[in-house]
Nucleic acid binder design. Structure first.
Lengths: 196, 196
DNA sequence: CCTGAAAACAACAGTAA
DNA sequence: TTACTGTTGTTTTCAGG
């Protein structure tokens, strides 16, 4: 399995700054041909590193309600359930789940109808307590740093290095640290699918 | 001053889902010609609603350190200073300032060297206290809802409606609720500039 | 990963509503 | 001011090496 090289990182950095920049332009910048850049971008999308091309919007200019920051302390083991419930809500933009079982989310709600948002989307039995703060402003600086490509093994959770494997199952990409983790996962996946 | 109509919203929605989608394609979707879409996108950028075209990256696949969530309680009146200091740091991706004087930020730091990040970028005299949480996972669902274009008046802070004005000063766009707010602001701006 | 050709696209001008 | 048509130069994509 191949990771990211410096050229990949440079391409990502350039597209992060302007995703509509012509590949031919980027090609010149990184010393490649346009088709080569196109191929690399395709690969990055397949790898799942690049999820898509999108816009950076200034939401402070758009009024569709009141922007709020939600801090929810989930009941033990229910943080991922709360995260999923929130992520499914239209009004919610960001969801961060932290290791201490808290879910922090940003949303824009009609008035201060946050209670309603929680009520309709989140099972309140999952929630230990929560706080709501009004967002005054927010910034986003998409950067890359010296990022390495290092997914987690879908089977054992270890970091996957260059020796790892990649498998696409029903359109989703999974990474594995070794062949045995891969076959174990695929086997389990197949039998679960058969049962369903 | 013109706001956003349904066509603008539809264009933004389509570009949000795929910012590399050809304008000709979008044109067909919204029932306009390609140059008309191009004009509208230019206008949206001028208005500041669209800040730019970028990528949606899956940072969980990229290891460049430990992702953390920072919660900083700023000293009274120092929240914007803390926000600016953090936003300027390379490792910081999101910064949310809430009305209660708290700054919540996400960052990816080499190890758990968060203290260093705060030390080098933020004036500790501005900070009353802070907490650090390890981010387990995060999601982003860029959506638009039924957003209205409604910036704040740069002079009085009121919401600017269709009757408002727009002025570009040294490349920055400012919105005003009325002509008198505008002239007051511009006058002050000019005299400040002259003094400097 | 390259080159070269064909198709698709964006940008510009001029014009009409 | 906004959008349309037609033209031009780029850009993307595809084939073959």
């Amino acid at each position: 399995m191949r990771g990211l090289d410096d050229t990949d990182r440079e391409i990502v950095r350039l597209l992060l700054a302007d995703s509509r920049r012509p590949f031919s332009d980027i090609a010149e910048e990184v010393g490649l041909s346009a088709p080569a850049v196109s191929d690399r971008v395709d690969r990055l999308r397949e790898m799942g590193v690049v999820r898509g091309f999108t816009l950076d919007l200034d939401r402070s200019l758009l009024r569709s309600g009141v922007p709020v920051l939600l801090e929810i302390d989930a009941e033990p083991g229910r943080a991922t359930a709360v995260r999923d419930a929130l992520a499914g809500a239209d009004a919610v933009e960001h969801v961060f789940r932290t290791a201490d079982g808290r879910v922090t989310a940003t949303a824009t709600v009609p008035q201060t109808e946050v209670t309603e948002l929680l009520d309709t989307h989140v099972d309140l039995a999952d929630v230990d307590g929560y706080e709501v703060r009004l967002v005054a402003d927010s910034e986003w600086s998409p950067g890359l740093g010296t990022a390495e490509f290092a997914p987690e093994c879908a089977e054992c959770g270890n970091t996957v290095d260059e020796e790892g494997e990649r498998t696409v199952l029903d359109g989703d990409t999974y990474y594995f640290c070794c062949g045995s983790c891969e076959s174990r996962f695929v086997e389990r996946y197949e039998s679960l699918k058969e049962g369903a």
